[in-house]
Amino acid sequence: MRYFIVVPALIVLTMTMLRDNALGEDSVVELRYENHRFAPQTITVPANQPFRIKVINASKETIEFESFKLNRERVVGPGETVIVNVPALSPGSYDFYDDFHQDVPEGVVIAGQPRRNLKNKENLK
């Protein structure tokens, strides 16, 4: 009997998600890791708009891009680039850091500034 409740619920969820997937043309902010630090260390984005962080590891060490407040973590090997999706944020500041190297200075995402402050925009397919 519960199949008849759970399965349709899951189908609705899946369809809802696939439908929303078409909305994926968010702005992209570039974040570069090099010389044992992130650049820029402050990323300014408009509040209430989803965006993506393009993390480029230009160093020779493996890092883990992580943000406790954004609930994101991603291993990035030397020379690799990864994309991290970030949901629309309430105005405020959100940490990010390299979880593999505690001595790397932490960075911050500041949400709330005008959209023109986005450093880089592109649509990723």
Binding site: R2, I5, P8, V12, T16, R19
Partner: peptide, 22 residues
């Protein structure tokens, strides 16, 4: 609309999982 659907589906799923049954 998709948020209403999501909320409804989550509520149904939660009920199916958590509500007491024999």
């Amino acid at each position: 609309p998709y948020w209403r659907l999501t909320t409804l589906a989550l509520l149904i799923l939660f009920a199916a999982i958590v509500l007491p049954r024999p």
